[in-house]
């Protein structure tokens, strides 16, 4: 249980860092860290297949796409950067206050619903995930294939533009 609390806190703190850090390259790396922490949580809960997907795709592929896109944008001057930094700090000054308010509100609402202090439910893995995916979610699979094709065309166009440049 302490491990899970630590991981969930790490997840929220990384997400906050992700939106507050100025350098976009560091932001991409922090986003990869968020995905990695989420995949560890999934692995601990027994969702091994989803954890592997999350780690390889979200932590790997998305970071590569982000960094490729960031590398194509121009570097701004130091004065412009300092000015934008000040404006960003002003805009994000309310975020910690809102987060604390949401945390308190959520605790007030959810605490009466707490039935058991046992951290883990009775682990029951109803059915094999492969059977469920291939037998019960055929329409989803078709949709995924179409979406992957659309994404592949998107990547092709993206890298064609980079080559031209």
């Amino acid at each position: 249980m302490p491990v899970m609390i630590l991981l969930l806190s790490g997840l929220v703190i990384s997400a906050m860092a992700c939106v507050m850090i100025r350098d976009l390259l560091k932001v991409a790396i922090t986003l990869a860290a968020v995905s990695a922490i989420l995949s560890v949580i999934m692995f601990l809960l027994g969702a091994h297949l989803a954890a592997v997907f999350e780690l390889s795709v979200c932590s790997g592929l998305i970071t590569v796409v982000f960094i490729s896109a960031i590398s194509m944008t121009r570097v701004i001057s130091k004065e412009e950067s300092a000015e934008k930094d000040r404006a960003r700090r002003k805009r994000f000054i309310l975020l910690p206050v809102i987060l604390i308010a949401v945390l308190t509100g959520a605790l007030f609402i959810l605490w009466p619903h707490l039935n058991s202090l046992i951290p883990y439910a009775e682990a029951a893995n109803a059915g094999n995930e492969m059977t469920i995916i291939w037998a019960g979610h055929k329409a989803d699979l078709l949709g995924q294939i179409i979406i992957i094709l659309a994404g592949v065309f998107g990547v092709l166009i993206f890298f064609k533009e980079i080559e031209k440049k």
Binding site: M42, A47, A50, A121, A126, E129, G136, H137, Q144, I147
Partner: peptide, 16 residues
């Protein structure tokens, strides 16, 4: 206790 179903939804979400 329906982790297999949750995983199948997760994979769909990750792809999208």
């Amino acid at each position: 206790g329906k982790m297999a179903a949750a995983q199948s939804y997760m994979i769909t979400i990750i792809v999208i």
